[in-house]
């Protein structure tokens, strides 16, 4: 039943301003990098079709504005999300500290059914820089993700296309699983309704 229906996965990308959210999306969807993206105001989004095993899915990637005050617009953007990607910049410790704030903010605003099991993926971007500029160690990030319930972690470079496909593959799979869980819930509810209706109308054969 669900295979005939178009599978749409909504993914929200959050993180401080300038960590590279737009660049990650552009690299994944269009395979290109530019220094020239305009700052995202409000939100923007891109779509990409993917084949996961034998299933075609459409990913709807929502890119959001990183400045804190834009969170007052969050509700509209976060609604119906299947996965949330939290991005920090490995050269910017503050952006790493804020990852957990972004996660909390998302959980408050998105009103997800099952907060403990909602899929998050963490991405540390800009690993193409010199070692000396990396101020958030991989170890520290791993520790952090482990504490939040083993969140998947990727270190990427949107500039040099490192680890982008791997990260988005996991994002897509987690989103799909979340979507199927939700759908199962919905179908379960629908099934009850259908039974009630058929009882009233009697058997068609």
């Amino acid at each position: 039943m669900s295979s005939r229906k178009k599978t749409l996965l909504k993914v929200i990308i959050l993180g401080d301003s300038g960590v590279g959210k737009t660049s990650l999306m552009q690299q994944f969807v269009n395979g290109k990098f530019s220094q020239q993206y305009k700052a995202t105001i409000g939100a923007d989004f891109l779509m990409k079709e993917l084949v996961l095993d034998d299933k075609t899915v459409t990913m709807q990637l929502w890119d959001t504005a990183g400045q804190e005050r834009f969170q007052s617009l969050g509700v509209a953007f976060y609604r119906g999300a299947d996965c949330c990607v939290l991005v920090y910049d490995v050269t910017n410790p503050k952006s790493f500290e804020n990852v957990s704030l972004w996660r909390d903010e998302f959980l408050v605003q998105a009103n997800v059914k099952n907060p403990e099991n909602f899929p998050f993926v963490v991405i540390g971007n800009k690993i193409d820089v010199d070692e000396s500029k990396k101020l958030v160690s991989l170890k520290k990030a791993q520790q952090f993700c482990a504490n939040l319930g083993n969140l998947p972690l990727f270190q990427t470079s949107a500039k040099e296309a490192v680890n982008i496909d791997q990260a988005f593959d996991v994002i897509a799979r987690n989103a799909l699983q979340q979507e199927e869980n939700d759908e199962f819930q919905d179908e379960f509810n629908d099934a009850i309704n259908i039974n009630l209706e058929s009882e009233n109308q009697g058997c068609a054969c």
């Binding site: 305009k38 105001i41 409000g42 939100a43 923007d44 834009f70 617009l73 509209a76 609604r79």
Partner: peptide
């Protein structure tokens, strides 16, 4: 359709995006 989704971008940037 939630019009806020595009109005936020339109108004805050004076359509400049």
């Amino acid at each position: 359709i939630d019009i806020q989704m595009f109005l936020a971008q339109w108004f805050l940037s004076f359509f400049s995006i």
